[in-house]
Simulated assay, not measured.
Amino acid sequence: MLYKGLIIGLFICGLTHVAKAQSNGIVEVQKDSLINLLQAFRAENGINPTTARMVSLGSKVVDKKNAKRVQVRGFRVQIYSGSSRNDAYAVQSRFQQEYKDFGSYVSYSEPNYRVKVGDFRSRSEANSFMRELRSQYSNVFVFTENVWVYE
């Protein structure tokens, strides 16, 4: 109930702000900086805005030595689920040998052990990695959970 009241209060404050801006005759436009980047990309590559295409805006390079690690809501790829503790740790070990740059995590929720890998901010990154892992592991899935990332 408190949550509902908070939302209504924020909505009323927003309406008041809009009404105040309109009475002054001033319109303030806020645009995400990525829009300019996307428009420039389309102009350089002759992409028609009515044609649907995947666009990569590149990945943000993080200096891990100077960055701090924080926990955020993100995605992981599950590569094992089963009742054998030994199998879970064997799968984790095999994964760590092949993918040294990705974190791997073993959890236990009765009666199953689960091995999840990666710390992805976006579902698309996790899905891409999941497709790569499908040839090596069976029953691979993407899960939403708290992950560790560098900022």
Rank of each mutant, 00 (worst) to 15 (best):
V142N: 04
V91K: 01
R42H: 07
A21K: 09
S138D: 09
Y89A: 00
R73S: 13
E125A: 13
V147L: 02
Q136C: 05
L37Y: 05
N48P: 03
V72W: 02
S81A: 09
S128D: 13
K64D: 05
G118M: 03
M1W: 01
A126F: 07
D119M: 10
R76F: 01
G82V: 00
E151Q: 06
R131K: 12
D101C: 01
A90M: 09
K64W: 06
M130C: 03
V62S: 06
Y108L: 07
K100Y: 07
V29S: 06
S135T: 14
S135V: 11
G14L: 04
F141Y: 15
S109F: 05
D101M: 04
A21N: 10
Y108G: 04
F95C: 04
K100P: 07
Y80I: 02
E145A: 10
N24V: 07
V77D: 00
R131F: 08
D101I: 04
Y105M: 12
K60M: 15
A19C: 15
F75H: 09
N139I: 05
R53N: 10
V70N: 15
V147N: 00
E125I: 12
L38W: 03
D101A: 08
L10N: 12
N66C: 15
S59D: 15
L6I: 11
N45R: 10
K31Q: 08
N139G: 13
G103E: 03
T144Q: 08
S33H: 04
F143P: 00
A88C: 05
I12D: 02
